[in-house]
Design a protein around this nucleic acid. Structure first.
Lengths: 162, 162
DNA sequence: ATATTTGCAAAGAGTTTGCATCATA
DNA sequence: TATGATGCAAACTCTTTGCAAATAT
């Protein structure tokens, strides 16, 4: 019912989306949205569930998954796969399109942006007569600096993977 | 024991890889390799398992997964994720690097190749001081032709998704 | 001969589903 | 108040693991 005043834009977008699709504006949905927009980087459904649980915002896993689907549908969250069978999510409102560089040593995920992707997309659309809605470009490799932050992080398994 | 004479190059590569890593050259491994190189397009582990079973080449799922890992390690097979939680594989010997265009209507997967990816990769390697081993670029969208082959295929669920 | 690989079935991880209860509209 | 959403646990799918039997070296 009472929704936070901290993230008015994203809450408004969600509210509109729920209205337009005759979905109910439940407190769980706004709690989950707020939790996501309070996070940085990538996360998975289980981590989000545990985080909410620790904050005494009791929601079930089912609701977390259901709400993530809704947030992906209204483009407030993006859903990503980095090849380890764990689906990752990331807030996406106000974030320009970016792609990912995944360290195969420490699983750290870096972000980059390159305008050439957009041109490749346009070309592919023309050649194959497709309308392209989204893309995912992931590079997989390893930092060449043996003392890089990512490798340090690897040695501290208790720190959460972004 | 007796291995086919149909795919001498890839079998030789596998044989060398097994030798160099002190792994055994079991008939199952070569049967699986041959089955994969007799297929076109993408497939998942279960489809490969069923195909082998139908050919009276009895192998267990465990062996299929084990062998796929080996074949990925020796670059005879590539492993791919298209966002539906089903890991796809594809033979890769003699195939130039390519990327994928996934139809979100019918799940058909088209392939394309663009040299600009290589330049983006080089730039990312320099900027982030990474050595990049591989990449995946997937575009997701829908064919703009209402009578396209992909949409026809959608209406025939018995035809295997590539 | 012996250590790896296989096959089977059970376990595991991540996600979805069924259904009774709750609460938004 | 009536339909949609929630919570819980069970079911489900894909993949991995444990262990006895088979087999490559």
């Amino acid at each position: 019912m009472a929704t936070s005043i901290d993230f008015p834009e994203v809450e408004h977008i969600l509210r509109d989306y729920l209205d337009q699709n005759s979905l109910r504006k439940t407190p769980e949905r706004f709690n989950i949205l707020r939790a996501i927009y309070g996070k940085k980087g990538h996360f998975d459904a289980e981590a989000l569930y545990l985080e909410l649980k620790n904050q005494d915002l009791k929601v079930s896993r089912a609701t977390v998954y259901n709400t993530l689907d809704i947030l992906v549908d209204c483009s407030l969250v993006s859903k990503q796969y980095f090849g380890d069978s764990i689906t990752k999510y990331e807030k996406s409102y106000g974030y320009r399109q970016h792609d990912h560089l995944v360290c195969t040593t420490c699983s750290r995920i870096l972000e980059f942006c390159d305008p050439r992707i957009e041109r490749i997309k346009t070309m592919v659309e023309e050649v194959y007569r497709f309308r392209i809605d989204s893309h995912a470009l992931n590079f997989y490799g390893e930092c060449i600096d043996p003392a890089c932050a990512g490798k340090e992080q690897k040695q501290r398994p208790e720190s959460a993977v972004e």
